[in-house]
Computed example of a mutant assay.
Amino acid sequence: MQLQVLGCSGGIGAGQRTTSLLLDDRILIDAGTGVGDLSFEALLNIDHVFLTHAHMDHIACLPMLLDTAFGSRAEPVTVHATQASIDVLRRHIFNWHIWPDFAAIPDSRNPFLRFAVMEQGDRVDIPGGHITALPALHTVPAVAYALHSDDGCIVFSGDTADHAPFWEAVNQIDDLSALIIETAFADQDADLARTALHFSPGALLNALGQMQHETDVWITHLKPADHALIMQQLHDDPAQGRRFARLQPGQRLDF
């Protein structure tokens, strides 16, 4: 499988795009502003969207994706998310006030948007592998995702703070190829990070002591003003066999 980074920033502006990953051309993991750089033809290929949670920076382009593709493809788009996230989308986005309810058009028996509930521990089979929802801890109900191919697995944390069940789930994966994990705030904003249930570098370094795998760690969701400082405050740990690198838009990970 191939995972393409469409957006991996904690903000916008000057080439920054918010969180979205494209898995093998037809599956989005989150739908932040990075989706907007896809061509029209590429947007029409999207069959499934897996959302970690319902915060704006992770769903911003979902309404526009549906609007763009509507009428130009025959099959509906399936959005996989927790029931809590689906409830938020129905109530606050696809409500005819903010955006048309694509779950009811062209009609409720044949909607262009289909919701599929995916809670922690649930698994969805996809061509060449499967996706499993893992525990995460954020200010709203959230999940992480384990993306499994026949040859390896990439774990994407979504937005989360330190959470023992997350690390327990990661440690049960035998073929972990890489960990993509958020570190939104620099250490001088550690109090804010704790309040917002995000990682800062010091908190991540402490939390990684719970991970048994020796694998590279890709850092995502950095605030644009502090991305260089955040990476400076993280440091490689040769004793644990771990290196840190900043995820980059346009990057492709094969696994």
Rank of each mutant, 00 (worst) to 15 (best):
A146R: 09
G158H: 10
M118Q: 12
G128V: 09
D151E: 14
L113S: 02
A190C: 07
H58Q: 15
I46R: 07
D30Y: 03
N45F: 03
I46H: 02
T195D: 15
T19K: 06
F185L: 15
M1D: 11
Y145V: 04
N171L: 13
L66V: 05
V79R: 08
L134R: 05
L137G: 00
H138P: 00
D107S: 07
Q4F: 06
V124C: 09
R242V: 11
A84S: 10
P249D: 11
I98N: 02
A133I: 09
G34N: 00
H48M: 06
L43V: 01
I131H: 05
G71H: 04
T195W: 15
Q188M: 13
D187W: 05
L192F: 15
V217A: 11
N95M: 14
D122Q: 03
W99T: 12
V217C: 05
L38Y: 05
D189H: 14
T139C: 11
T33C: 07
A104F: 01
V77Q: 09
L179Q: 02
C153V: 14
H198M: 14
I219C: 02
L222S: 05
R194E: 08
D67G: 13
H97C: 08
D159K: 11
I93T: 08
N45S: 11
G15C: 01
R73C: 10
C153Q: 10
G129Q: 10
L51S: 00
F199H: 12
L65C: 13
F115M: 04
